[in-house]
Design a protein around this nucleic acid. Structure first.
Lengths: 344, 344
DNA sequence: TTGTATGCGTTATCAT
DNA sequence: ATGATAACGCATACAA
């Protein structure tokens, strides 16, 4: 007995296989007596309904694919964890679908019928994937990043407005030499945050010099390398906007290494407000987006689409707001200009 | 046409359904002509073999369940990410199975036939789960934590020896008042690291006072709270061993908040050597275990067990070694004793 | 209230 | 080299 089937249970309980199926799913219109007998037999045989058989029959898998970047990037768990928890509560299992640059997700990989829906965290502008999935009738929701054309449900923060708030802070502190460490240009998050930053700065008569704009992935390494480079310049910036907190944390660590203290010698502003941002080691001033709310909104959209595939597409935008902590300061601070650029 | 089946392809290519199945799986003994015709038809219909049908027939799902704690705890991604990458290379998909204290994993949840194997990261001493899965013929591997009795494959670091090295460092630095922030008593990691610590300290004539031993989960919060409490004592410890790096990072942040600088005022030693440990903000002295090697060893064990269910059980122990960074220092340092305990 | 019969999409065995 | 045909385990429409 590797595994018992509903037929085995039926034989033991002296009923038909279909009665077992009904009994175990709690269908009404049955005598309690037979139901009990069946449940006891199932118990005795360690019977568990095989999902693979059930799925073939019902066309539902109760599994959701989650397309995310590397989980060692602390941003992803902040969304993946609450989404998987929410899905779990709703009776869905979560499948982790890696989407690295080297091995991007393929459509077939998601369209083999083993998924009831797909959550995409790594959408790139112009990617055909979301539309292709939607065309095949697979429920999709884009979270955190979006696309311009796709007719899928979307759930993002107000990136542009958030970045404008960051720009306002930087300008109000008197900084005129600002830098930015941005994410990949193919991401809507980086694009919108950059736009908001330039807009907010521009309204106050400040422009960012092209050489002060760094680009890379949304990673610690990007933040660390870019900040190191910025601090090695003779004309150091006095304020640095980072396209997300992970970059900002990398940037802060680079500053520490260079003997520059964020908040005293340099202003650093992040985006997202991941839990790490409020660790005493960083005390990062940042733009808060409620990631848990974003996660729950996404799962709500996805499950609604699964329940009703033809409902109107929805685009949810969550507000953002400035969180003042310890990494911002006035440009008047002398130490930010007095130090000589670090060597090597 | 929601989704095309192999029958649709057969009809279009003018062959039987079984021929389609053979052609698409690359079976030998076919005319290249029909194979081409079939492949073109499949392409035209956007045909993808439905895993749910295939699984029912082959009894293989190519899916592995990964039982882990919350991914927002930075320890888990360090193992989950390389394991999912390795599994992906081997043709398996990764299913995330949450195991929180409130909702522990159930056996049935893993034995519904939708998994080819299970990786358990959250094993508790005395848990019946691993044995129960093995009894049902489900391949299981325990990673990082182990059980005493279970007849499953296991893959852990040499926790005891690592902790002895930490103890040796603490003793050699001249500390006599040592504290420990440990994990849950039901975990083999905490048990073995505690044993190694006491052993190493004992060999050098040092005993830890009971009131200097804190216990909690393997989390930032545990480290933060415990260190805060330790620093509020009149008789502060001069050295603190943390059962893992996540706890140690929490502890270091608490120290910073209290105005105590690890490495100068206080010795802190961690365990695991997660990437964060070498961030400039922490420079954590720790015991290194190669987490990527642990992950790959685990997947090797699991896939071997799937291929050969009756092979002898294996227990792999990976070595650990001390990594000296910046959070250790001599007990002679005056600042560690001069300060008055923080109020409130 | 329960049983019979059929189908879900695939693989695999057995003919031809 | 290819086609029938029978599982695989379940849900479900229909009959009784």
């Amino acid at each position: 007995m590797v595994v018992a089937t509903s037929r085995d249970v039926a034989r033991m309980a002296g009923v038909s296989q279909s009665t077992v199926s009904r009994a175990l799913r709690g269908e009404g219109g049955m005598s309690e007596q037979t139901r009990d007998r069946i449940q006891q037999a199932a118990m005795a045989l360690n019977y568990v309904t095989l999902e693979t058989g059930r799925s073939l029959s019902t066309r539902a898998t109760h599994r959701i694919g989650m397309v995310a970047g590397e989980l060692t990037n602390p941003f992803y768990p902040e969304l993946v964890e609450p989404m998987r928890a929410d899905l779990h509560r709703r009776g869905f299992r979560t499948l982790l679908i890696p989407d690295r640059d080297e091995t991007p997700v393929s459509i077939d990989q998601l369209a083999d019928g083993s998924l009831d829906g797909v959550v995409i965290l790594t959408a790139l502008l112009g990617s055909p994937l979301p539309q292709a999935l939607a065309d095949r009738g697979i429920p999709v929701v884009l979270v955190n990043r979006e696309l311009d054309g796709a007719a899928t449900d979307v759930c993002v923060m107000d990136n542009r407005d958030g970045a404008r708030q960051a720009a306002a802070l930087i300008a109000d502190l008197g900084h005129t030499e600002a830098a930015a460490i941005l994410g990949p240009v193919q991401t809507s998050t980086s694009r919108d945050r950059e736009a908001g930053l330039r807009e907010g700065l521009g309204e106050r008569g400040i422009a960012i010099r092209a050489s002060m704009v760094c680009r890379g992935s949304f990673s610690y390494e990007t933040g660390f390398a870019a900040m190191t480079a910025l601090l090695n310049r003779a004309d150091r910036p006095t304020a640095v906007f980072c396209a997300n907190d992970v970059i900002a944390v990398g940037a802060c660590n680079a500053a520490m290494t260079a003997g520059v203290q964020p908040g005293r010698d340099l202003t650093v502003v992040g985006f997202d407000d991941i839990p790490m941002a409020c660790w005493p080691a960083f005390q990062l001033t940042t733009i808060r987006g409620d990631l848990t709310a974003l996660a729950e909104e996404a799962i709500r959209l996805l499950t609604q689409r699964i329940a009703d595939p033809v409902r109107a597409r929805e685009r949810v935008v969550l507000p953002t707001h400035l969180v003042l902590r310890g990494t911002h300061g006035s440009s008047a601070n002398p130490r930010s200009r007095r130090r000589t650029p670090g060597g090597s």
